[in-house]
Amino acid sequence: MIRAVIVMNDQGKPRLVKFYEHQPVEKQQEIIRSIYGVLCSRAENVSNFVQADSTFGPDTRLVYKTFATLYFIVIFDDSENELAILDLMQVFVETLDKCFSNVCELDIVFNFNKVHTILDEIILGGQVIEMSSSEVVKAVDGISWLEKNPNSIIRVPKSISGWQGR
């Protein structure tokens, strides 16, 4: 399963932190710092994988990808396919791009709870729900719409599910 998804910038500031197994706050920060230390020291044009055994136990790996100023990091164990996780990150970033139209670091900083919602539509409890970014966008749009039209739940519950079911 996927153990954690972390987005941080090239200064090591966390922008999105999601652990699928509980870690105390202090431990989370320690992990983020140690990951940043490892990623900083890696040259360009090397593989995207790093062993993460020391922090997450045996056979865990960390895969990272850099997009502009941001590191996207996924930590997972041996029940996941490393290369598929790379694709998953691509899907995540594409989805962010669709939701924020040309996503940049600031979008993620100021809309971190929307980013969480997007992530929750892709990964649930450490398992992948959806690999199609258009499906994810549809679901997230549904949530946003509902949030802006709070009365619709009471008034037209059926119509919403019908709307979604298209």
Binding site: Y20, H22, D120, L124, G125, Q127, A139, G142, I143, L146, I153, P157, K158, I160, S161, Q164
Partner: peptide
């Protein structure tokens, strides 16, 4: 609940912290 989004939120939370 009847609303799928609310059910979705609850399922998501349950899947993460149950």
């Amino acid at each position: 609940q009847n609303n799928q989004h609310i059910v979705g939120l609850a399922l998501c939370a349950l899947g993460n912290i149950c």
